[in-house]
């Protein structure tokens, strides 16, 4: 604990983090609690884990949650089918069950020798009971494998970063063990810095024009999905690649499809233009 000075994460060259977000990451590091990140899609929740791991020189383990993911999968999988296969064709030593135990991302994070970053991505994709099944393991950071009578305990508690899109309410008991941060949509000043990171050679004037158009577009009432940071960056990339400038286009925005992903939204914006 002694070498764990505060304010370790400062953002990276490729990722501009707002002050509150940096603060939240550092609190999670110091208190050794999982950090839950929420925010609009495209505000960089998942990317944060990659950049924290890069900035702090810790390995990153990714666990992408799907609707069928079970908590057990994150710990370990006992590959009974492989063992059955081996037993029938006499491949390998079937008596050694440990050979058929495959650690999942959470299992690997706990078994690691050094402190690692574990990303649990889009936790609300899974069943609503999923977070409850992880309570004990995230709390004590250890688990048992009954098949081999072994216990895996973390030497250093990993930094767990959990992202969520607000699709499901997470259980209170789970939230109590975590700390929480909501990533707000960047204001134009912060957005300018973020775009600069991705398009360092872009002219100031063009950038201002793009941002103005972008924030105006976000302000259109009734959009089903407002464009976010990642879409802005893609859009600027498309503009630059094609050489189209905003000033020359009268009326509609070029490459609207990179910003708005549904037909209704595109119709709505075209109708207003």
């Amino acid at each position: 604990m002694t070498d764990r000075g505060f304010d370790r994460f400062q953002g990276t060259e490729g990722y501009i983090a707002s002050d509150p977000l940096r603060h939240a990451v550092n609190v999670a590091l110091a208190l050794e609690r999982p950090l839950i990140l929420r925010g609009e899609p495209g505000t960089g929740k998942t990317l944060l884990a990659h950049h924290v791991s890069a900035a702090l020189g810790m390995d990153l383990l990714r666990w992408h949650i799907k609707s069928t993911t079970k908590a057990q999968d994150g710990l370990y999988v006992y590959d009974t089918v492989a063992r059955l296969h081996d037993s029938r064709f006499n491949d390998g030593d079937v008596r050694d069950i440990a050979r058929y135990i495959k650690l999942g991302p959470l299992g690997q994070a706990l078994a690691a020798d050094k402190r690692v970053v574990l990303l649990i991505d889009e936790i609300d994709k899974a069943d609503i009971e999923f977070p409850n099944d992880l309570l004990q393991e995230l709390d004590v950071m250890r688990f048992q494998i009954p098949e081999t009578r072994t216990e895996i305990a973390a030497k250093e508690r990993p930094l767990v970063i959990i992202t969520s899109n607000n699709e499901k309410e997470l259980p209170d008991a789970f939230l109590r063990r975590c700390i929480f941060h909501y990533i707000e949509f960047p204001n134009p000043d912060l957005m300018k810095k973020i775009v600069r990171v991705h398009h360092p050679t872009l002219e100031d004037k063009v950038l201002d024009q793009c941002l103005e158009a972008f924030f105006k577009l976000r302000g259109v009432p009734g959009l089903r999905k407002r464009p976010s940071t990642s879409e802005l960056i893609d859009w600027i990339a498309a503009l630059r690649a094609s050489g189209v400038s905003l000033g020359k286009i009268g009326g509609g925005l070029p490459f609207l499809g990179t910003l708005l992903k549904t037909e209704q939204d595109q119709e709505l914006v075209r109708a207003r233009a």
């Binding site: 505060f6 609190v27 939230l175």
Partner: peptide, 28 residues
């Protein structure tokens, strides 16, 4: 309280605001 002991609030009210919100509030 543990976080305050560790000095995570930077001895400022702003730091305290963000720290307390991160630790105590779990829902937007």
């Amino acid at each position: 309280c543990q976080a305050l002991e560790l000095g995570l609030h930077d001895s400022s009210l702003d730091g305290f605001y963000h720290l307390a919100r991160t630790v105590c509030v779990k829902d937007l």
